[in-house]
Design a protein around this nucleic acid. Sequence first.
RNA 1: GCGCCUGUAGUGAAGGGGUUAUCACAAGAGGUUUCCAACCUCUUGUCCCGGGUUCGAAUCCCGGCGGGCGCACCA
Length: 572
Amino acid sequence: MTDNSRMSRLSSLLRRRGFVMPSFELYGGVSGLIDYGPLGARIKRKVIQSWIDHWSTVPNVVEVDSPTITPESVLVASGHVGEFNDKMSECQSCEGTFRTDHLLEGFHNSPETLDAEEMDRLISEKNIKCPSCGLASWKAARPMNLMFKTRIGAMGGSRTAYMRPETAQGMFMSYPTLNRHFRQRLPFGALQTGKGYRNEISPRQGMIRLREFNMAELEYFIDPNDPPSMNLNRWTQKVMMIPDTEGPNSGEKTVSFQEAFDSGIVGHPTVAWFLAMTFEFLTKVGIESSKIRFRQHEGTEMAHYAADCWDCELNGEHGWVEVVGIANRTCHDLQSHEEHSGSNLLKGWRKYESPISEKREYLSPVGSVVGPTFRERAALVSEALSNLAEIPEIFPFSLALSDGMSVEITEEMVIRTEEDSVLNGEYFTPHVIEPAFGIDRIIWHILDHNYQELSKEGEDYTILSLEQDIAPYDVVILPLFDKDGMDIMADEISDRIAAIPGILWVKDASRSIGRRYARSDEIGIPWAITVDHQSLEDGTVTVRRRDDQAQVRSDIDSILELLSLGTVSTLF
RNA sequence: GCGCCUGUAGUGAAGGGGUUAUCACAAGAGGUUUCCAACCUCUUGUCCCGGGUUCGAAUCCCGGCGGGCGCACCA
């Protein structure tokens, strides 16, 4: 089948030149898994490095690294196991698929607690009909588990585990370490890049829906009473924002980040700041700003952990695609981990502006009287005494215990005590603002937005106008002819470039010079150094700029210096 | 997961129950050439996998795997 679309030409290029290709093709391939080839792997590494550098400019952000294999208990607490174990029922006549517990709503108090067999029995007992075609013939309910399950330990004592569906849980696990590292002072954040896994029902669209994918996430822990904000005027561009259509600001807006926050489109100052930071990052790595928009989640599409979420979407050959989610996860994760683990290390400390001193009066039980009088219930009496809101003036009085009984307290059972307490602050569970980036999707859009199909002297011509920081090579070395000493000089220059840290080069000496320029333009090498006859005489070479094919001649020493500084463009 | 379409060198395609599967581009070696895919010679390399039908299957049939689109799903 002939497919002449721009997307298929771009995909062919990516495969042909070694950017990305299907994995395990020797054995037929596996859908949802891709390889980055020699050029793609370079780009991926550079994008991730740019991402780390970008977010590391935020004060109090550090990098961590945690395992991809995650014990089940962690993901039970985070809610992923529950969310992932939904049963699905499929209609036999129209093939509509629905969550089984949703079908059973109204027929059972807590349908989500039933197992698959009970669900199926209930479905047939109640003669539940398909919402789309109205018939009642269902296939057996099946669990839809989108996590890859595995076991830690080979033999009987092994524990159930899953490949992580997000890197975030690793950062929550590190919270006590981070809190200590930052000396208990919020806000602070941890970032992590790495693989995440989702056993998608039907991966599609090349690099867009993968089963194993590269994520980059930042968990920024804040005091909800004092959320950090930034001067948003640093970013002047206007961007498209689509607030929740059910919310008060519905309708597409084109606003600056400052305007978005001032007008309440984005309600949270830290979220607004992160939207702007996200925009800045994407444009820095070569995403076209006109193809960026932010869309707020509807209440119904919100993840189980989020109170508010903005997606950053990019427009490309696949339409608008979500590439970043900026979620206010509130205290959901830390609180849930606190409850499930019983740890008390997942708190933040909020110091009061001035200490609160409190004079408190209470009745202290006299053990030698209370003990013998109430025996095994003495502890309940002590507890009830310390919980008394007001101290009775008249004895004896009746004291209600937590077991529902009351006892009579006489004067000699207690001593009236006064205590001065000073409260300097309080513990609370920090909130988390999380920007989560899908690196593969971003890479696809970098390639898409920079893939230029041009015409040069009547012929098709392709340039990949990658940013210098993202390009797979910084420079290509081209001897005009591979002889007469030009070959030797090219090798000498290559050796000197190889000694510059962080600069990647490639030499190409085969076929005509025009063809070699075309080859390097096609894979996005920003600069070409050409050694010609004049080079042999005076030590100068030409530098060619990929994007407009302009050439300047300069001596090799200054070119190498500019290359190491990343300022070759000042030559033009 | 369902339905429709689909799978031939690195890429894009043509063909097709019968000797050795075709073309372009790309790639490698050599030649030529004083800066933008030129040209000449030579070279490498392909029918997704498994089963069936058949004297014979890359071709027909079935299944699997992969890809595209639609439906469903999508933290």
